[in-house]
């Protein structure tokens, strides 16, 4: 019970937070019904804002986001952190061996990182 206690509270908090957000969204709906909030949509009002002009061309395009490569680097290092966390927790018990081992593990990844850096991948070109 005591172990699950905290998680139970967190789950409960999530439900309450979602309910609160739902309340924040539903309350204006209620107030609209009560005529506190105006509701007068018009084609111009519900148009997309683009500095007062009609938007031209598609919005949902194949956007050239230019950080494709370091998004890949991100995946590598984010997975690495999954290994680092348990290592860090147990570090005091493991000692020098673990330190050197992790050093080697990271060094391998850093080689890749340096390669990516040299290849000018780490830029939003």
């Amino acid at each position: 019970m005591s172990f699950l206690q905290g998680y139970g509270f967190v789950g409960l908090l999530m439900l309450v937070a979602l309910a609160l957000a739902a309340l924040f969204i539903l309350l204006p709906c209620l107030l609209t019904r009560l005529r506190v909030i105006p509701r007068k949509p018009s084609p111009i009002k519900t148009d997309i804002y683009e500095c007062g002009l009609e938007t031209q061309g598609k919005t949902w395009v194949q956007f050239n986001f230019r950080y494709y490569f370091y998004a890949l680097v991100f995946v590598v290092f984010d997975v690495e952190t999954i290994f680092l966390y348990p290592w860090a927790v147990a570090f005091n018990k493991l000692g020098l061996f673990a330190l050197i081992e992790m050093l080697i593990f990271i060094a391998i990844l850093v080689v890749g990182f340096v390669y990516a850096w040299r290849k000018r991948v780490l830029e939003w070109k």
Partner: peptide
């Protein structure tokens, strides 16, 4: 609280509606 709620015609209605919830809950 008393502002009109405007949803653009071209928006993806559900994504538009759920986005604020997703942004609000995690900090809490």
């Amino acid at each position: 609280l008393t502002k009109e709620d405007i949803v653009p015609d071209r928006a993806d209605k559900w994504v538009h509606l759920l986005a604020p919830v997703v942004a609000f809950v995690p900090p809490l």
